[in-house]
Design a protein around this nucleic acid. Sequence first.
DNA 1: GAGTGGTCTAGACCACTGT
DNA 2: CAGTGGTCTAGACCACTCC
Lengths: 264, 264
Amino acid sequence: MAAKYERIADDLRQQIRSQQLAPGKQVPAQTVLAERYRVSLPTVQQALSVLQAEGLIDAVHGIGTYVRAPRQRIRRTTDRYQWEKARALLPLDERSQTGSTEYDTGLTMDDLDFHTEYRTCDASADLARAFGVEQGTKLLHRIYRTFIHGEGPAVSLIDSYIVYEVAAANPDLLDAGNEPWPGGTNHQLRTIGIEIDRIVDEITARPPQGDESELLGFGSGVAILVLRKKSIDTDGHVVEISDVIMPGDRTIMIYQTQLDRWPS
Amino acid sequence: MAAKYERIADDLRQQIRSQQLAPGKQVPAQTVLAERYRVSLPTVQQALSVLQAEGLIDAVHGIGTYVRAPRQRIRRTTDRYQWEKARALLPLDERSQTGSTEYDTGLTMDDLDFHTEYRTCDASADLARAFGVEQGTKLLHRIYRTFIHGEGPAVSLIDSYIVYEVAAANPDLLDAGNEPWPGGTNHQLRTIGIEIDRIVDEITARPPQGDESELLGFGSGVAILVLRKKSIDTDGHVVEISDVIMPGDRTIMIYQTQLDRWPS
DNA sequence: GAGTGGTCTAGACCACTGT
DNA sequence: CAGTGGTCTAGACCACTCC
């Protein structure tokens, strides 16, 4: 009863799971599959597109179709938040050494290319609610894109927001030319008398849209992890919000929760 | 240079973003689109399949294609862990009232159907590493499926693992007939002298595979959030591991990190 | 029955890659 | 060049839903 392309996809999926089709150039050519399963070419392609959407295979134009190998994941722990905050107190030369991307990836700044852009925008409904300000309030919008080497796929896409009038207390914070700022956002905020007390992470997932797949360097068939990180100062105000987009197959986010002990 | 189906998809995507195509039965029929864009039917279908994979539209056989409305998200905070642990100390009648799914969804137990199954399995490489035991060690594998009402899509899929010899200290823990266990896993572990001290959550995301979309009740075009939750006892041993699968468009996971204060 | 989306075909042509 | 995947067509037939 199932459609032909589904039976073909099921068959290939099972072969992949059972390692009968191991990572590498293993998937036969579309024409071969069409003959083997006695179907037309578009039907084979439909079956393959299913597996591609599931992230099991990767088709390379002119070369062939490969079983995708599991990716090494970048571990993202909350230790980084404490590390970032402590770094803001270090002397300038130590602050300048590394940033948080290097902290994540273990790569040095020489391996990484940074693209930074500052803009202003009006607070959307959800950002306004999160900051506790009127919708339409002017925000400083900082856009960070990190690449490995000279080009290739982005490691992370970060969009950071701060209420403009807050940041404007130090005009240096409005100039993208000062990036990368030694000591990061924690140090920037320190120059205007703000100390981050706690961080709230909100995590969702969704499929990539439009050109995000290209930009992040994964074909279709990879989900996107979306992290909205809210930094709250010692007065309980949300002072900064970062939207971080990460590839779901290369990222693992780790959180630890300490529980109260039972009375003995 | 772009393919026809891409231009059509881009056009429709923009119409959706600009609310020109609002949530509801708004997307014209495939035949209409084929005429409008002067392309063949399969080309229109290819364009629509792109948008469906992105989660922007939902096609209903025999009815039409709709712009998908944003979903109400279930908030999953770490408060639940403390709540679950404290619940294990309550008297039986209070423990029996609600479980953690109700805690998440706000629904009562009357609205929910539970399916529970106990099995045993051999520890895979990653489970063995996490538990700190030999690969192949016998594990108790508990399978939980929660549904709303009498049928329909599953709310969550949970696969829980405990080292078999540990659980066997209380034979009641090996019998699925005792589910739902009043007070949950924390109380179960308490009967064998184990207290959970902290919980480590590891979060990734991936596209749904095979029949997962059907089982969880979302069409294609929804990413899956995968949570591996490790419960660690007061001796530092990992005593239980839960793999939780949640729909990315209906879930938001929230974590709070408290930072050390700067010295004044 | 009319309208919708879902599947499938046979074949064409193009674009990309490596030899 | 040969082999690969990517796009597109014109048309057929089916399955589902509503009237």
